[in-house]
Amino acid sequence: MLVLARETTADVTAIDGALRARGARPIIRRPEALTIRIDGRRPVILEADGSPLTPDACLGWTSLAARDAGLWLLKALEMAGVPVMNRAAVLDPGQLKPTLSLRLAAAGLPHARTLIAGADADPDVLIAGLGLPMVVKPCLGTKGGGVGPLGHRAELIARLAEAGAARLPLYLQEFLPNDGSDLRIQCVDHRPVYAFRRHAAPGAFVANLHAGGRAEALTSIPPALARLATAAARAVDAPLAGVDLIEVPGRGPVILEVNMTPGIYTAATLAGPNRPVLEPLARQAVDLLAQSLIRLAGDGLRRRQAA
């Protein structure tokens, strides 16, 4: 089992152990360590020393930091007949927030009102659409980086100018009333496994754990939220997903985004005092992920034999 990751995180270590416990042989590699040879109809995956690598399945944990190296490698693996989770065609648009919003909307799911604005947009039209304050997010971002409120027209104008200089759209969302917390639901095989509420650190805008947020485990996932998380993971075709949402008074749950490379086990390591509660749940999720990868490898083998 090839586990493709930028570095050896707590997630990688946990999935390595879970796979070994089931008799599988994990191969942990950075995307930069592999070479693709194209001299026939199917590409060949090569180790750094030139020897061929023929994994039965691949966990494509290619974060944004390894995006450029990882996405083409995932595609090559798929073309070589290796089943991949999550596939390049899932990961690529899923990491782009504008595309993700469009896919959630196409599925009819409750999503925060969003504007994807060109640099020439009239700021007053944007304000009329979302009101102030509104929230600005990078089109391509992770761990809550670059997310913040825009409370004044002048701030919006400055951001439009920055977007124009970078030749990028400006990704804006409505500000959703909340108590400084949101909800993360971790999914494996499109099914919710465990969930926790994230509380923002004092003075912080985002509740992301990497930004100092605090985790509070949910002992159970309400059925309506479980169904919504499953629908979101299926809408973006991501077997492995972290669904982030806010429960808005008088409106119900609203999806913020879907993370395609969620820290399934890392979340427990960042939970502080809640770690003893979250860690068993995280281990269960990793266990299910290992089982899913082994099934994926078996399905791929049967398809190759049938062909």
Rank of each mutant, 00 (worst) to 15 (best):
P149K: 14
I246A: 04
P149G: 00
D182I: 08
F205Y: 15
V254Y: 04
A224F: 06
A165M: 14
A232F: 03
R234N: 10
H190N: 10
G145D: 13
T142V: 14
A238C: 14
R167Q: 14
V248S: 08
A238R: 02
R234C: 13
K137A: 02
I246W: 04
D179K: 13
R251K: 15
E174K: 13
R153F: 06
R167W: 09
L228R: 05
L176N: 08
A163H: 01
R198S: 08
A235P: 00
H199Y: 12
R153K: 13
V188S: 03
N178A: 15
D244S: 10
R214D: 07
R153Y: 09
S181A: 15
V248L: 07
Y171W: 13
D182A: 11
I157W: 00
L183T: 15
E174N: 07
V188P: 00
H152G: 01
A207H: 03
P149M: 14
H210M: 08
A154E: 15
A217Q: 06
A204G: 09
A231M: 10
P202N: 12
A232D: 03
R184G: 08
F175S: 13
A154Q: 14
V254G: 01
P253L: 06
V236A: 06
G144L: 01
E162T: 14
H190E: 13
A201L: 11
A226D: 09
R184H: 10
D244E: 15
V147Y: 06
G151Q: 11
P192F: 09
L172T: 03
Y171A: 02
F196N: 02
Q173V: 04
L240F: 10
A211G: 11
L150N: 00
L168D: 10
V188G: 01
D237M: 08
H190I: 01
G212R: 00
A166G: 02
A154Y: 09
H199K: 12
R159E: 15
G252S: 12
